[in-house]
Design a protein around this nucleic acid. Structure first.
Lengths: 199, 199
DNA sequence: GACGTATTTGACACGATGTCAAAAACATGC
DNA sequence: GCATGTTTTTGACATCGTGTCAAATACGTC
């Protein structure tokens, strides 16, 4: 059989970058094909469809991101861990050239928009899955913190609250493009969760 | 001069409904034209472009929504006001048929995605403007509450935190479709802000 | 060295946005 | 009452996007 003339992973990286910058619906397969030096038809042959290509590119990213988060949440006092978590979150959707933004949040709000199902539904599941796993990581961190007496509250509820704030930050980032503001909100959230508001 | 054969506001309503349900990029002017019983060309003549039409439809919605929010924030104890605020927020992006979601958040993440500027930038400004105005409303409510001794904290920061949570709720809504969870997060947020966490 | 299989390539169908000129419908002035 | 002028409507067109398909191609394999 004839061997493939392009690198699978290279294409996924290039595709994800384009999707991230211009949105899924705003990126054409012609764009990606041109950037990757591949024929459009080859992409269809290799990945099936535009959204299938996006899904694979996204899963790639999600895996890497989860690993980085796990690392950020893994050392130091509870406050340090949460600070590192928010830092990584904000850095993630502020890196690279604008308009970037959080890929997961972008995807969640942009896809899954069709009334029926289909691939959009698969994408929604992928996004939701990453959010779930991040929430679990935060919850575990809080539980461990509670055992060490650094936190007294409901880890499940607090983790949900924290994850909600990070998603909100992803939205505010696009509305205002004001990084100091985002960091202020993050610090304030940590204070509230750790009970510094209990003054 | 020849009179228009369709009602300007009717079209805006129909268009907004479609945009809301299927996303801006997922809705075609042909769809709207068919639904509204208007020729596609007439829409271009009357509104200029798809995104201009969306902008007008959105502004319409934003005005109505702001009025409703103002009402929700205007009566009762501070806790009651904030509860009404979160209720309205959640109800807003859970009303109607799926997949709905918060129009502003949907728009913010979907539009403003092009690297350059143009109409996307106008849309971004419109979204950001609504978020700003809502934040101001919440901040005023908190300030008033502080004067009555119902709140002791920085109204500006707390308002930002609250608005961040509402945007996060809009994202979680699409990820999980779990309304009780959203309401739980809302209650928890109010507790944190009002200092019930100060036990 | 011939064969089979997977990839590449280019043409095609279809639908979307946006433009334009010609046709149509009404208000206005004579 | 009728001609005029302005605006809307209408349909054709150009362009670009997705997705499909069959023919051509290039490589492992026997």
């Amino acid at each position: 059989m004839r061997p493939r003339e392009f690198d699978h992973d290279d294409v996924l990286r290039i595709a994800f970058d384009q999707f991230w910058r211009k949105g899924v619906r705003g990126t054409s397969l012609s764009d990606i094909a041109r950037d990757a030096g591949v024929q459009r038809g080859s992409l269809y042959n290799a990945f099936g469809s535009k959204e299938a290509l996006f899904l694979q590119a996204y899963e790639r990213y999600a895996g890497d991101y989860l690993v980085a988060l796990q690392k950020a949440l893994g050392a130091g006092s509870l406050r340090k861990r949460l600070t590192a978590f928010f830092d990584l979150t904000i850095t993630n959707f502020r890196s690279g050239s604008p308009p970037r933004g959080c890929p997961t949040t972008r995807g969640l709000m942009e896809l899954g928009a069709t009334e029926g199902e289909g691939l959009d539904e698969d994408a929604r599941r992928a996004f939701a899955n990453l959010v779930s796993r991040i929430t679990a990581l935060v919850q575990d961190t809080l539980s461990a913190g509670a055992e060490r007496g650094e936190f007294s509250g409901n880890p499940a509820v607090a983790a949900l609250h924290i994850i909600t704030v990070t998603r909100g930050l992803a939205v505010l980032e696009r509305a205002f493009d004001d990084e100091p503001q985002l960091r202020k909100i993050a610090v304030h959230t940590i204070d509230l969760v750790l009970g510094k508001g209990a003054r």
